[in-house]
Simulated assay, not measured.
Amino acid sequence: MRVLVAEPDCESANSLRQHMRRHGYETEIADTGAGALGSYQEYDLLILDLELPDVDGLQVCRSIRTTSDIPIIAFTSHGTELDRVLCLQAGCDDCLVKPFGFRELVARIEAIMRRIRPRAMRSRRLSHGPLHIDRDRREVYLHDTQVKVTRKEFDLLQFLASQPTTVFSREQLMTEVWGASLPGGALGSNIARTIDTHVGTLRNKLGSSEWIITVRGVGFRFGGVQQC
Rank of each mutant, 00 (worst) to 15 (best):
Q158R: 15
E7A: 06
S12T: 13
C87L: 00
G33L: 06
L86H: 11
A34Y: 13
V225S: 14
P8E: 11
L157I: 05
E26M: 13
V55P: 03
R203C: 12
A30F: 05
F220G: 00
E51K: 09
G200A: 08
N204H: 14
G223T: 00
I195Y: 07
D31L: 04
R22L: 12
C92P: 00
K98T: 07
G219Y: 07
A120I: 01
R216E: 07
T166H: 11
I112P: 01
E153L: 07
L202T: 06
R84C: 09
T76Y: 06
S127F: 00
I70P: 05
L37F: 06
G224S: 03
D49S: 09
A120K: 15
R117C: 00
I70M: 09
I109K: 03
L52I: 07
D44L: 02
P118T: 02
D54A: 11
T165C: 01
A34F: 12
R22F: 11
Q158C: 13
G24R: 11
L45W: 04
F102R: 05
G35H: 06
E28A: 13
V177Y: 08
G224Q: 02
H128D: 04
T214I: 03
E26F: 14
R125Y: 07
C95F: 07
E11M: 12
I191V: 12
I133F: 08
R137A: 15
P164V: 01
T197N: 11
L187H: 02
L45M: 10
A186S: 08
G188S: 11
R114G: 01
Q59C: 07
S12Y: 12
R108Q: 04
I112A: 02
D155F: 08
S123A: 14
M174T: 05
V225G: 06
G38C: 06
R135F: 00
R216I: 05
E153D: 06
D94M: 04
L173C: 04
H128T: 01
T27N: 08
L16D: 07
G185Q: 08
F222N: 01
S39R: 12
L45G: 03
P183Y: 10
C95P: 00
C92G: 00
L202D: 05
T166F: 07
L157F: 12
F75M: 10
L182T: 03
I64P: 04
R62E: 15
D31M: 10
E26R: 14
I116K: 13
D54S: 11
T76R: 06
W178L: 08
D56E: 15
R135D: 04
Y25Q: 09
A36E: 05
D31G: 07
Y43W: 10
A111K: 15
S12G: 08
V199I: 15
Q172G: 03
T150N: 09
R17C: 11
L206G: 04
M121D: 12
L45A: 02
Y141S: 12
D9Q: 13
R125T: 14
V218D: 05
T194C: 10
M113I: 04
R216S: 13
E42S: 14
R216G: 00
Y141D: 03
H132V: 15
T214D: 08
A111E: 09
F75N: 04
L105T: 01
M121R: 13
E7V: 03
N190K: 14
R216M: 02
L157Y: 07
L126M: 12
I72N: 02
S15K: 13
V3C: 09
P99E: 07
S208P: 01
L52H: 11
S68H: 13
I73L: 13
A120L: 09
F222M: 02
I112W: 05
